[in-house]
Amino acid sequence: MRAFLTFFILLLCNLHRAQEHSSSRATSAKEVSETDMSKSEENKKKLEPQLDIWEELRNLRDLVLEQAVDLRLLSAKLTESDSLVQVLQEEITVMKDRLTAAETLVEEMQMEGEAQSAELTMTQQKLDIVQERLLVNVAHVEELQEKQEVSKVAFSTSLLLTGEGFTYYPEFTTLVYKNVFTNIGNHYSPVTGYFTAPVRGVYYFRFTGQLAFNDNTIRLRLVKNEDPIVLSGDRVSEFDREDNVSNGAVLHLEINDVVAIQLGGYVWDDNYHRTTFSGFLLFAL
C-alpha cells in the first residue's frame, strides 16, 4: 500500500512539472507569435486534455488521501485489535493456569477422598470385628447365664404324699415319688417319676426303701434311660421283721437323659417318709 501511495505522489509531481513546463512554453509561444492565431488555437486545444488529466489526477490524489486516512484508521483499529487479542491471550493464559491449579486441587481432593475412604473401610472392618467379638461375648455371657441357671438343679422326694401303706410291683416298674420336698429347676416330675437332665454334666443320685411286718422281698434299682445302674434288695423273715435298703451313684448325663427308681416286689412308706429318691447336679460339662 505504501509503495502504491509513493508511486501516485511521484506521478502527481511529474505531471505538475509537465504542466508548469507546458505553461512556460505556451507563454513563450504567445509572446513570440501573437499573430499566429491558428497556431495558438491549436496549442489551446492541446492544453485542454492536459487540464482534464490534471483534474483526474487531483481527484485521484484526493481519493488516495482518503484511502490513506482510512488506512490509518484501519491501522489504528488493527493495533487496538492486536492489543485486545494480547489481553485476551493473557486472560486465557491466566484461565489455563487457574484451570491447571483447579485440576491439581481436584486430584489432591480425590486422593484425599480415596485415602479417607480406605481409612473408613478399615475402620468399618475393625468395627465389624469388634461387633463380632461383642456378639461372641454376649453369646458367651448368655450361655454362662443359662448354665448358671440350669446349674441350680436339686430335688428330694418321698413315695407317699400322705398316709402309709405298701406298694407292690411283681416286675420292675418305675416308682412315682409324689411327695416333693425340693425341686429346684422343676426337672423332676411327680407325675411320671422321672428326672430329666437339663444340662450336660455330672449328677449325684440316692434312694432309700423300707419294708416291715411281712415275709416278702424288697428290690429297688436306679436306672438311666431304662438301663439298670445300681440295685439294693432284702427279704423280711420271722427273725428279721424290718429291713431298710439304700444305694446311690454319680452319673454322667447328657441333656434330656432320664433317671428313675424302679421297684420289683414290696416297699413301705408312711408319715416318716422312709422310702425316698433324691439327686442334684455336681457340675456342668
Rank of each mutant, 00 (worst) to 15 (best):
M1C: 11
M1E: 09
R2N: 13
A3H: 09
A3P: 07
L11Q: 09
N14Q: 06
N14E: 07
L15M: 09
R17A: 13
E20W: 08
E31D: 14
S33I: 01
S38E: 15
S38M: 07
K39H: 14
K39D: 04
E42C: 03
K46G: 06
L47F: 07
L47Y: 10
P49W: 03
L51R: 04
D52H: 05
I53P: 10
L57E: 08
L60M: 14
L63N: 14
E66G: 08
E66S: 09
A68R: 12
A68I: 10
V69M: 15
D70Q: 15
L74C: 14
A76K: 14
K77C: 09
L78M: 10
T79V: 15
S81T: 14
D82I: 06
S83R: 14
Q86N: 12
L88V: 09
L88H: 13
E91F: 11
E103I: 15
T104S: 11
E107D: 15
E107F: 05
E107W: 04
E108R: 13
Q110C: 09
A115H: 08
Q116H: 11
T123W: 11
T123E: 12
V130G: 06
L135E: 15
N137H: 09
A139P: 02
E142D: 06
Q145L: 13
E149Y: 03
K152Q: 08
V153M: 02
A154W: 01
F155E: 00
T157G: 02
L161Q: 10
G163T: 02
F166Q: 02
T167N: 02
Y168A: 04
Y169W: 05
F172N: 03
F172C: 04
K178M: 07
I184P: 07
I184E: 10
H187K: 12
Y188V: 03
Y188M: 05
S189F: 02
G193L: 03
A197T: 05
A197K: 03
R200E: 14
V202C: 10
Y203T: 02
Y204K: 12
Y204C: 06
A212L: 05
A212K: 08
N214C: 04
D215T: 08
T217A: 06
L220T: 00
V223I: 09
V223N: 06
V223G: 02
K224W: 01
K224H: 14
E226H: 12
V230F: 06
L231R: 12
S232K: 10
S232P: 03
V236H: 00
E238M: 05
E242P: 01
V245Y: 00
V245E: 00
H252T: 09
I255Q: 05
I255W: 04
I255F: 03
V258R: 11
G264P: 07
W268S: 00
F277S: 00
F277K: 01
